[in-house]
Design a protein around this nucleic acid. Structure first.
Lengths: 192, 192, 192, 192
DNA sequence: GATGAATGAGCTTTCATTCAT
DNA sequence: GATGAATGAAAGCTCATTCAT
């Protein structure tokens, strides 16, 4: 999941992610990360500036990883609908396959612990912009109503996030049928 | 916002909410809450069992408050569409007027710090069930496609949450037009 | 056990004794005493100056009570041996019947928490002096070796205390036979 | 006194012992131990699990130390009387030379703060068993009356403890003569 | 580069005591 | 005389971070 980092950093980031999801940020101490990852605190501080730095790198790493997964296969010459639906399907699959990363982003995208400059990455360096372009195209092709693509992306992203969240919280059960309904509803919600 | 609590508890809950949103849970120490609320730590512990207890009461209080606000004016004999759209409009207004409560629920509904029994309140004691009933009616009246009301509520809730979130993060700007578009999209997304 | 005190004081002293033996002095808080005794903290402070005062009164009260019990029936015109053995038997019975008072004195007679002036009560206001007089008589009657009565009292008191202590700690089992052996050994240890 | 421990642990244990005797357990705070021992609280918690752990290790350490001192020179082929009297003399010397350890055991051997498993050490890992064997031999050799060796050990231990205690409390003065009288009385008390 | 013992500020929580009612 | 809410200093303990080895 953290391909841009060296082995030590990967071990730290993966261990930290697991601990934060399992126990909460405040219960995830450096010494616990050290013990679970097998890296001494001294070494952790050699590769990361601080605990805050680890969390922020984690955030960046997950957003980057998610971006690649979501955008996988959307730069084709197929019709927009196929490509857009593929993106949303990618997002659903990703969230269910990597629930820790999904939960982490959900839980900490509002947190003051994540620096504002890093947060921008979610919106600007992530998959938002490419998707917004797809929406803009759909508007141009008169497929979608003339609304701000940014707005539509957030709206649909929210739909998906909450259905997945409910599934992870065991409030809903996700089936193929549900996924199809979700994707169809997204499309229909803004169709002309 | 916390009408069921006495004055001391209200002061503590309101102060805590403000601090958590401003600084993060882990940076919100009891002594800071005491100093800012003007209640001594001893008194805080007279009214709350622990820090965890404060956070959980905060959660419960906000969910209850939000529930009343969202459901305000939906038990009329108007057509379903009016009542459902009123509920969503209530939610949007509420989230923009009380952004701290909104952010808190968003950030901590996944947190292990909130006890599972308290989390259930969100789904079961909150506004979800009444809204699900409205959706079930709409399905029966052939207004909506035959999908699980729980699923539809979550989907639409997610749409609204993410649009509001983007606005609070200054990624989007919300106008009346945006709100109308959002509500219309929700309705259209599952309409037959 | 605390006949010289009023009802409120008695309730406080008895509750405190029970709690200290069960939980330790440091785990016996004023609020716990208040809750268990049914007396409010305010009232406790009306009748006692401080927590330290309660403990010291407790000490005095137990020592006084024990003194009466031990000396019961020794001011007769029977031979010294009968009277002395009766005193020791009284002590054994007392310790087994009121183990909490016994333990408390054992545990706290060294404690800096008990004021020095109060501690003197054990030696001087308690049963030590009367017993020392009996020993002095026994020395005079050439029953006992010519040793300091104070020394002999402490020596025999120690014997009894440790046998009782071992019984309370379940290291020894006390039977009538054991008690007879103990008393006989005390007598024999200093006999001429 | 605490040879099995490293330097930091020794400093902590010795400082703690001194403070507890001087001020009482509840007045001996971790920060006071840290300040007086020159070890930071963090380090103390690196070497001990908790305050309770320190106290229990203290207890174990003293009991072990005392055991060696008391049993020193009793495994010879001299007559029993010499060896037994040497043991008691060792105990008296020890208690007067290391009064803090002596007082600590006296004061806290009843305390719930000391775990039951640790308390057993006093009776079973300490010097009691070896001494009980000596007594059993003395019984077999018809030197002593046929009584439970455990009982006799406790009885004599109590005699010594209380004479020493009285001396430390300045109620008695200990001289060589007193010590001789004490040892002789112990022997005589159960002699046939 | 790697280690983990050492630090001490700061955490949550308790508790003896006071005092308005 | 009785109450118990209120106080805040101080308790035991944790933990991000440093640095000698």
């Amino acid at each position: 999941m953290f391909d841009n980092y060296n082995k030590v950093q990967q071990a730290v980031l993966e261990t930290t992610l697991g601990l934060i999801i399992e126990k909460e940020l405040q219960a995830t101490s450096m010494s616990l990360i050290a013990k679970k990852s097998g890296i001494s605190t001294g070494s952790i501080y050699h590769y990361f500036e601080s605990k805050e730095d680890i969390i922020n790198e984690l955030y960046k790493g997950i957003v980057t990883f998610n971006g690649h997964k979501v955008l996988d296969g959307i730069y084709t010459d197929e019709p927009i609908r196929n490509r857009l639906e593929r993106a949303w399907r990618n997002l659903i699959t990703l969230s269910l396959e990597y629930p820790q990363g999904f939960q982490f982003i959900e839980q900490y995208s509002f947190s003051p612990y994540i620096k504002d400059e890093v947060k921008q990455a979610v919106y600007e360096g992530g998959w938002c912009h490419p998707l917004e372009k797809l929406y803009a195209e759909a508007v141009q092709q008169k497929l979608f109503a003339d609304m701000d693509p940014k707005f539509m992306v957030q709206m649909h992203y929210g739909s998906i996030v909450y259905v997945v969240k409910s599934a992870l919280n065991h409030y809903l059960t996700i089936s193929d049928e549900v996924i199809e309904g979700l994707i169809a509803s997204c499309w229909q919600s803004v169709s002309l």
